[in-house]
């Protein structure tokens, strides 16, 4: 065969051992799991408006679901395991595709202009990294309380109020939530494509839905911390 890339010279990318589309499916499915969790989580967070008791009660309730049929915290742990698995799988696929893309174009263009690419799609990767870091911080902050001014033996409500009263902490959340908003804007559309559910007629609807969904979810998450900051919740 007379070609420049003789098959011997071509380096089979490791990535090819698992199909790039398979990785995308992993991302889409794990992404959807995370999205479903976040919808519930956002609704739960809005209970901050209902006061300390309701919020703490809700937190308690999560830990008691299924009792007495199953021992305490079983369902919570199942959720945690699924979430962890989803995050790990999601991150693995993302990093692997990222590396494949880097190998696919080691030399960049001198001049480059993007027209179709949105801010959201361009920031998926670094936005995802921000989200990953945020999740770690967030768990240390509100679940474990170790990174929270109210300390680890406070109630979840106290920790939320204590954290969000600090403009710096709130800023971190705002940044992360904006990142989330953008991530979902492209993510929802992208998952629809990846799972083969988009077509020309649906394309606009899918994109509109993705935008609305991202805005609603981000806003839903943003309201409680901002309310704490400006003193609506105290």
């Amino acid at each position: 065969m007379v070609t420049v890339t003789h098959s011997g010279q071509r380096r089979t990318p490791k990535a090819a051992k698992t199909s790039s589309v398979f990785k995308k499916v992993v991302m889409a499915v794990s992404g959807i799991i995370l999205v479903l969790y976040l919808i519930a989580h956002m609704v739960g967070n809005l209970k901050l408006f209902a006061g300390a008791q309701t919020f703490n009660g809700y937190s308690e309730w999560i830990r008691r679901i299924g009792e007495p049929a199953v021992p305490g915290q079983t369902v919570l742990w199942i959720i945690r395991v699924v979430l962890l698995a989803a995050v790990v799988a999601h991150a693995w696929a993302a990093i692997s595709l990222w590396r494949q893309a880097k190998r696919a174009r080691p030399q960049q263009y001198v001049a480059r202009k993007q027209v179709a690419q949105s801010y959201a799609s361009r920031t998926m990767r670094w936005g995802g990294v921000i989200l990953g870091l945020f999740i770690v911080y967030h768990i240390l902050d509100l679940t474990l309380g170790v990174a929270n001014p109210a300390g680890h033996d406070s109630t979840p409500y106290d920790r939320a109020i204590a954290g969000f009263s600090n403009p710096l902490v709130t800023l971190v959340y705002v940044v992360a939530l904006l990142a989330l908003g953008f991530h979902l804007r492209h993510g929802v559309w992208s998952a629809t494509q990846t799972l083969g559910q988009s077509n020309k007629t649906r394309e606009r609807t899918v994109n509109a839905f993705a935008t609305v969904f991202a805005v609603v979810l981000t806003a839903g998450f943003l309201i409680p911390p901002l309310s704490v900051l400006v003193g609506i919740i105290e």
């Binding site: 071509r10 380096r11 089979t12 990318p13 990535a15 090819a16 199909s19 790039s20 589309v21 990785k23 995308k24 595709l97 494949q100 893309a101 190998r103 696919a104 174009r105 179709a116 690419q117 799609s121 361009r122 998926m124 492209h186 559309w189 992208s190 494509q193 990846t194």
Partner: peptide, 12 residues
């Protein structure tokens, strides 16, 4: 994949 192309992330 074998040819060394990147994966699609639906950028458009």
């Amino acid at each position: 994949d074998l040819e060394g192309f990147g994966g699609c992330t639906n950028i458009g």
